[in-house]
């Protein structure tokens, strides 16, 4: 285990500490160790770009995680009905997750672009008043982002929850059948609590994906229209590589890390206590 520990401490924790140290300086293009402590964090909190991107992320995150969990659960239940061609469906549902968003995001962008995508095509068929321009509407573009992210992420949730469903004891089903309980009741009141740790795992994975959301935004909307789909990760990348603002970018990165910790820690403990309860 020693090499593993060296990697964990040296690479992961070391990089984290370094990021934090740099966020305490006024480094611009290259690291310069002149400390001004929490100045960058104060600047970050007063930066409209950052505040807008955090607000966007909250909307995106809540919708994305909720829809993914519901949709993934429904798909998993569907797959659990011993349907024909299950492995084919599984592959199809999981396929988006295996694809890079840089590639598919670009295709999505073209499909949704009103001047040559769906809108233009349908209008070409003679429906002149057809409008589907969410991607260029500042008040709707965030939903396009959710749509594309759900398309990618729900397959993963399905796979995780399906594994959970397969672990449910067959006898349970027989017992509920004898008692004459409706199937949907069994799923919501009996099965769901049993696979709750699985759902918690899926939620953590989705939350991390939300905080990290970058490639999707860059490929799909470029943060636009205006700043309607700007996200913290993009803010960090921009300040790191384009605006020569390394310290501010690292302060943003630390804030993102804090967000992940705040979201993941309660889920982690809830999961552990659930596991203990199940075991005891």
């Amino acid at each position: 285990m020693l090499p593993a520990w060296i990697i964990v401490i040296g690479v992961f924790i070391g990089a984290m500490i370094w990021t934090f140290v740099i966020s305490m300086t006024n480094s611009r293009l290259i690291p310069i160790y002149k400390f001004n402590f929490f100045d960058q964090y104060v600047r970050l909190m007063g930066n409209d770009g950052w505040l807008v991107s955090v607000g966007n992320l909250v909307v995106f995150g809540v919708l994305f995680i909720a829809i993914c969990l519901v949709l993934g659960f429904l798909m998993a239940i569907m797959m659990d009905q011993k349907i024909r061609g299950e492995s084919l469906f599984r592959t199809i549902f999981l396929y988006p997750y295996a694809m890079s968003f840089v590639v598919t995001g670009l295709v999505w962008q073209w499909v949704l672009n009103p001047t040559f995508g769906i809108q233009a095509t349908v209008r070409g068929w003679g429906f002149d008043t057809f409008v589907f321009d969410w991607i260029v509407r500042p008040d709707r573009a965030i939903f396009v982002l959710v749509l594309a992210a759900v398309w990618q992420g729900s397959g993963l949730v399905m796979a995780i929850l399906l594994a959970g469903l397969r672990g449910v004891d067959e006898d349970l089903w027989k017992a509920t059948k004898v008692d004459g309980i409706a199937k949907w009741r069994v799923y919501t009141s009996i099965v769901l609590p049993i696979i709750a740790p699985m759902a918690a795992t899926a939620t953590v994975l989705l939350s991390v994906a939300v905080v990290k959301a970058y490639d999707l935004v860059v490929a799909l909307t470029g943060g636009g229209p205006g700043n309607a789909t700007e996200v913290p990760a993009k803010f960090v990348m921009e300040n790191l590589f384009e605006r020569q603002n390394v310290a501010l970018a690292n302060a943003g990165a630390i804030m993102m890390l804090a967000a992940v910790v705040i979201v993941a820690t309660p889920i982690y403990y809830a999961r552990r206590s659930m596991a203990q309860k199940a075991a005891g």
Binding site: P138, R243, N245
Partner: peptide, 19 residues
Amino acid sequence: FSPEKVGAIGAEMKVLWAK
């Protein structure tokens, strides 16, 4: 102008374009 300033001008122009 510094890259930060240029970036800020671009960001403002982009937001106003969409408004």
